[in-house]
């Protein structure tokens, strides 16, 4: 599991690559801390190269959403493949996040 973070036009973008399973979740949680300082800037989570996500990963996404939204930030998801999309659908996450 690898994450890449970049700032671009007032957006905070994090790209995920690989499997976000339970084993990977604690490191990923650390990686995602940088997004907590969003200060109203929108966040884009790029899932184009994310192969897999388990509930541990979903929790990280939900945790981020709960922190960012009170600060006036939007959290967008993008690039999910069909299988991932199904997981997000099944868990109601597609209605929580905004899809690009």
């Amino acid at each position: 599991m690898r994450t890449t973070f970049k700032q671009e036009n007032k957006h905070l973008i994090m790209s995920f690559e690989g499997r976000l399973d339970t084993a990977a979740s604690s490191q990923t949680e650390e990686d995602m801390r940088v997004l907590y300082d969003c200060e109203g800037r929108d966040i884009i989570l790029d899932c184009t190269n994310l192969q897999y996500i388990s509930s541990s990963g979903l929790r990280l996404f939900l945790g981020l959403l709960k922190k960012a939204r009170p600060k006036g930030s939007h959290v967008y998801l993008t690039g999910m493949n069909e299988d991932l999309r199904q997981v997000f659908d099944e868990t109601g996450f597609t209605t929580l996040f905004e899809m690009l």
């Binding site: 388990s54 509930s55 709960k66 109601g92």
Partner: peptide
């Protein structure tokens, strides 16, 4: 199981795993 229809603010962290086991 997690209630998947609630909003982000009301969402509890947990119960997702069991929900996914059933769905998958």
């Amino acid at each position: 199981e997690a209630d998947t229809s609630t909003s982000a603010e009301e969402r509890k962290i947990g119960g997702l795993g069991v929900h996914l086991m059933r769905k998958m």
